[in-house]
């Protein structure tokens, strides 16, 4: 063999031997109220719909985005369902139970501590701004302003696509709008059917918008932020109302 050929480095040169394309990270945070008032039908609906929802979310990213899920529950205590965000493809939903009070402020503080590159958002490739979905049926029992202020000073939170779902009569939409930054991105469910539908629509729409940038397409950058796009779409989607039993009378 001549010298040229002998010195050839042919290690690792199989053009077919690839790993997956590097994917961008998108963490979808679910902040879920598991206080006692959620007991019964609301929790049942929520658990069922979340189980069904996750496989659907996992397809949204395609080959470009790895969608991960992190679930934080708050009642007397705050608790992550898993200690790190898990890929939606392999996420298994643990059914939640309801009891205790609504320590939403503590949940905000905990979320703020995890919204960092050294914590939950540590993808070596790039991350997309996270999607944050808050679900509650009541007013915080604790002082939430401090936690909210911590979030508002976190730039991941500021870039995040934020949405909130109020359940039943007691949820305070004004406070939820403080969290998301605008009333457009707060939706309200009064009935079980609405709850199931809204969780799904809101989570899928927010994840879709979160995983893309130019969702408005045609004019390139639309001039609208993701948050504004989400507000617009949610307003359109929730315009269609339907009736069934209401939470306040049903249980």
């Amino acid at each position: 063999m001549n010298e040229n050929v002998m010195n050839f480095n042919y290690n690792g040169d199989n053009p077919l031997d690839s790993t997956g394309v590097p994917r961008k990270n998108l963490v979808v945070f679910f902040l879920i109220d598991t206080s006692a008032s959620m007991k019964g039908k609301k929790m049942g609906e929520l658990n069922t719909i979340m189980e069904e929802l996750i496989p659907e979310i996992s397809h949204i990213g395609g080959a470009d985005t790895d969608i991960k899920i992190a679930v934080l529950t708050f009642s007397d205590d705050i608790q992550w369902m898993y200690s790190i965000p898990m890929s939606a493809e392999s996420f298994e939903w643990n059914r939640l139970n309801a009891s205790g009070v609504t320590n939403m402020g503590k949940a905000f503080e905990e979320l703020a501590s995890k919204l960092s590159m050294s914590s939950f958002l540590d993808n070596p490739s790039m991350s997309l701004a996270p999607v944050i979905f808050l679900m509650t049926d009541g007013f915080p029992s604790d002082e939430y302003k401090k936690g909210l202020a911590m979030l508002k000073s976190n730039s991941w939170f500021n870039y995040a696509v934020k949405t909130a779902l109020g359940m039943g009569e007691d949820a305070d939409d004004k406070m939820l709008a403080e969290f998301t930054g605008s009333p457009d991105t707060v939706v309200h469910a009064y009935t079980g059917n609405q709850l199931a539908k809204l969780i799904k629509t809101v989570a899928v729409t927010a994840s879709q918008i979160g995983s893309e940038t130019y969702s408005d397409g045609i004019n390139g950058i639309s001039g609208k932020s993701k948050q504004e796009l989400l507000g617009e779409q949610l307003q359109k989607l929730t315009a269609e109302e339907d009736d069934d039993f209401t939470f306040s009378t049903g249980w």
Binding site: V21, M117, L121, S125, M126, L128, A129, Y159, T213, I221
Partner: peptide, 27 residues
């Protein structure tokens, strides 16, 4: 490019420095 080289033709050192891919950085 993605089919052969299994990556993004525009994503390199300069892009990943941004850490979070916001509208501004994508534009």
């Amino acid at each position: 490019f993605r089919l052969l080289f299994r990556g993004d033709p525009m994503e390199g050192e300069r892009v990943v420095k941004d850490v979070c891919l916001t509208e501004t950085s994508e534009l």
